[in-house]
């Protein structure tokens, strides 16, 4: 907390930022720019087919080659950044909000509310994450919307657990007792006094969670349950390329590198943020 107050991120304190944080911001920022500028940056239409140039290896015209429909892999990777970045962000935002609210209220209220919540979390965590996701998506029907709903239904537990543990500690802290003695309402104490101090750990976790969500999203799409063709998305591109591993390795290879590089950016962001905020994971 003192680190936050002492060095607000800004031009003056930029040299003090940990190296992983700087690299992470640059890497994620570059992907975000690429995603936003996709219509202008991508050399080809990501969806239009041109069978005349199908399955071409990387060349001057098609830097990363073409797929079996003659679509430019580079253009599809660039457009794919839009979808996968969106998956990573939306797939974290909803669990974050839901989990933080539930966990904070339960930790603050305590008693039966808290006990019930912990049992629910135990049960949800008993299911392998991806298995529960797949089962929920199977019921809702394949698609990105189903993925987000499933993510919200399953992903909130980690945030609820994190914030609850923090709130349990902080609710007996001196400054909270002081606020109570001033007769502030529960809502004000919880959301104005406790939560801002409890949330740093969750913010750091959410950055590494983006990595897991992007991996889950592309896995689900790879299995055919997420984003549907012909949309350019990295998981689908890898799945489509699997049929051509003996002849055209580049179709699967490059979208995978894209996932690794984007995930690396968020991992660095998480590490750097943890160092910067003094949070131990």
């Amino acid at each position: 907390m003192s680190a936050l107050a002492a060095s607000r991120p800004g031009p003056a304190s930029l040299p003090k930022l940990p190296l992983p944080l700087v690299l992470g911001i640059l890497l994620v920022g570059a992907w975000a720019l690429l995603a936003l500028a996709a219509p202008w940056v991508a050399p080809f239409d990501p969806i239009a087919q041109n069978l005349a140039v199908a399955l071409q290896p990387p060349s001057a015209a098609h830097w990363l080659g073409t797929d079996n429909f003659g679509r430019d892999v580079l253009s599809r990777v660039i457009w794919g950044a839009r979808v996968d970045l969106q998956i990573g962000i939306i797939g974290v935002v909803f669990p974050f909000i839901i989990g933080t609210s539930i966990g904070a209220v339960a930790g603050y209220a305590g008693g039966i509310v808290d006990t019930v919540l912990m049992r629910v979390i135990d049960v949800v965590l008993a299911f392998p994450f991806l298995v529960l996701m797949i089962a929920i998506i199977a019921i809702l029907g394949p698609g990105l919307a189903s993925f987000y709903i499933a993510m919200a239904l399953v992903g909130w537990v980690s945030y609820a657990r994190l914030i609850r543990a923090q709130v349990l500690v902080l609710k007996h802290a001196d400054f909270v007792l002081a606020a109570k003695s001033l007769d502030f309402g529960h809502a004000r104490i919880l959301f104005r006094h406790i939560l801002p101090n409890a949330i740093t750990g969750s913010i750091v976790f959410s950055m590494s969670d983006v990595v897991l969500v992007i991996l889950s999203g592309s896995s689900i799409s790879y299995l055919g349950l997420g984003v549907q063709p012909p949309t350019a998305e990295w998981g689908i591109m890898i799945a489509e390329g699997q049929g051509f591993i003996t002849t055209a390795w580049w179709i699967s290879a490059f979208p995978g590198f894209a996932i690794v590089i984007m995930a690396f950016g968020f991992s660095l962001l998480a590490d750097g943020l943890a160092e910067f905020l003094g949070v131990r994971e």
């Binding site: 699997q242 591993i245 995930a263 690396f264 968020f266």
Partner: peptide, 18 residues
């Protein structure tokens, strides 16, 4: 190892097959 955190298993499998 930090980069490895973001390795998609299905892609890694395909690369190992290739």
């Amino acid at each position: 190892s930090t980069a490895g955190l973001g390795l998609p298993a299905f892609w890694l499998g395909i690369m190992l097959i290739i």
